[in-house]
Every structure is written in C-alpha cells, then in structure tokens.
Amino acid sequence: MTMQINANRATCIGSGQCVFTDPDAFDQDDDGTVLILRAEPVTNEEITRANQAVHVCPSRSLSLVTEELEYS
C-alpha cells in the first residue's frame, strides 16, 4: 500500500495552511495555488503531517488516498 496526497487546484484559496503544516510536502505558486512537492508520504511523521494538512485546509482541496501497489 502507498499513500498519495491529491490537491484540487481549482478550489484552492491559497491560505497556505498546508505550507505551514509541512513545508517539505507543500508549496504555493506565485498565484497562491497549492503545489505538491512530495506526493507520497512514507514515514509515520510524513503521514501524520499529511493528515494534518488535509484537516486544516479551509477549502477542503486536499485529500490523502491509499492506493494498492500493483506488482507486475
């Protein structure tokens, strides 16, 4: 299993709360819209911070989804 952070850039209001929560995982472009720097949190701390970022996002533009790894 792997976790992935998804961002809806169309609804983002540029509050920057994700950047405060984890500047290693999130940034903003010049217009303020969210940029994901690290889409896949791996360590427990990274996953905790990703969850916090999802929680504090005022426009609910972030989600953390779990994906099954496909082995070929």
Partner: peptide, 15 residues
C-alpha cells in the same frame, strides 16, 4: 468567489 479570490490570493502567500 473562487474566481475573485483567485485574483488576489497570490498577494498573501506564505513566502
């Protein structure tokens, strides 16, 4: 609102 806020939100980014 999304369009109007989008025009100004770049002024107050964290950086």
């Amino acid at each position: 609102h999304t369009t109007a806020r989008g025009r100004v939100m770049g002024e107050f980014t964290v950086k």
